[in-house]
């Protein structure tokens, strides 16, 4: 039986802890600074140029999100739980009248709240600059991109928590998170490119292999929101637009939601099972 009051209490503490975490503060400042710099670079003069400038800024923000958000979400998700486990605070917390589902969910919600704060701060500053320059032609599209960034952050956080359920030391969790980040951001793309060249992969297969990566889902859906087509993404983008048309964006959103729910569900399952498992002879 899940007690939502427990979830609120622990999530509130996790949110406060995360916002006081010095690495989180550094990240927030860095993200906001870069978002601000990118938005400040647009120089509006004339409607056509303004539109191009907005698109360029939004695309730059998407690239910033693709690099930064997975890094912070994966690492903070993985180290939050593993850190509590290594230090011993988790064992003490679990000895109180709470259950494992409440603990994991509340930690997830608390950290997600901190990530949302960071994203809102960064995107908010950038949006304000763009608005002051009279440079937001599509405020709805901009807000939708922010929502997509939230979803990406949640997906990465779910993967971070999944890593944490396998890790009993902060260093292991951090290593796993960094490896997954490298894989998703760089190695995955390079691997697909290499496979495409080596195997002459058909365009539909390229698309499906590409969008298996949640980062690519975010990228496809963001560009679709900004430009209304995926021409810029080459054959895979053209294939996706022609094959799925207006249902592509909902499909990508469902894909992102699956990347949130499945890893988190698996993490919950493993975390609940761990009271029956043993790692190095000690049940944590």
């Amino acid at each position: 039986m899940i007690d939502f009051r427990n979830i609120r209490i622990i999530a509130g503490k996790e949110l406060r802890d995360s916002l006081r975490n010095r690495w989180f503060i550094v990240f927030t400042i860095a993200f906001a600074g870069l978002a601000l710099a990118l938005s400040g670079l647009s120089q509006p003069s004339g409607t056509q140029l303004q539109l191009a400038s907005y698109n360029r800024t939004a695309a730059s923000l998407v690239n910033l999100v693709l690099l930064f958000i997975p890094l912070i979400s994966l690492t903070i998700g993985a180290t939050n739980l593993a850190g509590d486990r290594e230090v011993g605070t988790l064992t003490y917390l679990l000895a109180q009248p709470v259950n494992r589902v409440e603990v994991l969910l509340s930690k997830y919600i608390g950290v997600a709240g901190a990530l949302f704060t960071t994203l809102t701060f960064g995107f908010g500053l950038a949006g304000m600059v763009l608005a002051l320059q009279g440079n937001i032609q599509d405020a709805g599209g901009y807000l939708f991109t922010v929502i997509l960034a939230y979803l990406l952050a949640l997906a990465m956080l779910s993967l971070g928590f999944l890593i944490a359920t396998f890790s009993f030391r902060i260093a292991t969790a951090l290593g796993g998170a960094l490896f997954l980040w490298l894989f998703l951001v760089f190695i995955g793309d390079l691997g697909i490119m290499g496979t495409v060249i080596a195997t002459q992969m058909p365009v539909d297969a390229i698309f499906w292999v590409t969008v298996l990566n949640p980062l690519q889902m975010f990228k496809f859906s963001s560009i679709l929101t900004i430009q209304a087509n995926l021409d810029v993404l080459g054959p895979a983008g053209l294939y996706a637009t022609s094959q799925f048309g207006s249902s592509l964006l909902p499909l990508l959103l469902v894909g992102l939601l699956i990347w949130i729910v499945i890893p988190l569900g698996f993490a919950l399952f493993l975390f609940m099972r761990q009271e029956k498992l043993v790692y190095k002879g000690v049940a944590k």
Binding site: M1, T89, P97, V98
Partner: peptide, 20 residues
């Protein structure tokens, strides 16, 4: 009902670990 059982127990570990 582990949670209900824990509600009637006060627990002191060998070395309690607290949040900062």
């Amino acid at each position: 009902a582990g949670k209900s059982a824990r509600a009637v127990i006060g627990y002191v570990p060998q070395e309690a670990k607290f949040y900062d």
